[in-house]
Amino acid sequence: MVRYARLYWEFFKMHIKVMMEYRIDFLIGILSVFLIQGTSIFFVAIVFDHIEALHGWTFYQILFIYGIAQTGRALEFIFFDNLWVLGQNYIRPGQFDRILIRPVNPLFHVLADRVQADGVGQVLMGLIVLITAMVNLPIEWGISELLLLVLMIVSSGAIFMAVNLFFASLSFWIVDSIPIMGAVFTLSDFTRYPMSIYNRSVKFVLTWLIPYGFTAFYPATLFIENSEYTMIGLLSPVVAIISVTIAYQVWKKGLKAFSSTGS
């Protein structure tokens, strides 16, 4: 564990050095990501110009849901983004062999190979949205609430990562699963809004099959009074642990398949 932490630090330092060489590009990236997240918020704001509540949810409550999802997803984006290109950059061109002849965990190596600095823009936007919502919602923020919120955000990031890891691992069988990952990721659009606006089957899928519901909406209900949900949000960390475990098992199965076919 300590060894991997130290090794990650070495990778991280190196990525920072590269970024500093392309400072302008780095800034453009952060700004762009910041803006594209901003457009979605702006969209909601414009809609709320014309209405007072969305299915009983106020503007700031929706911002709060949004903020948790954005910040959680941003953590995933910064540290785990390389999973998207597992097929395209590693398996298809044969670069995965290079990973396998190194004395480190292959998943660790793939993840450490990239730090997506543009995600800083997303963290910023996520925090701005989240804090705006927190200030404007009638919630008492003490230390325990803040800690709970942090735990929820980390769980949210872990769930995003687990879903991506699960579908990225399919690349071991079909060479490149990026289109499937993209389609599944579209599902995360659902999490921006209160789940109560969807019908039962959508809710079921987002709760029990691809648990994006636990990346923002359920955790948010813990803090918002009078919502029809009470405790399900507390399950988020558990869901995160289970999802990560399942996804890692699939990854290991994929590795095994890879080592018997080598393609």
């Binding site: 590009d25 780095f26 453009i28 990236g29 700004l31 762009s32 457009t39 969209f43 809609v47 543009d118």
Partner: peptide
């Protein structure tokens, strides 16, 4: 050099100002 950033920037502007999300009359 880093065209990816520009693309995201373009996406952001386009998504919003093209009216892809909602009618510009709103």
């Amino acid at each position: 050099f880093y065209i990816w950033g520009l693309r995201i920037l373009r996406n952001a502007i386009l998504l919003f100002f093209s009216g892809a999300l909602l009618p510009i009359s709103l």
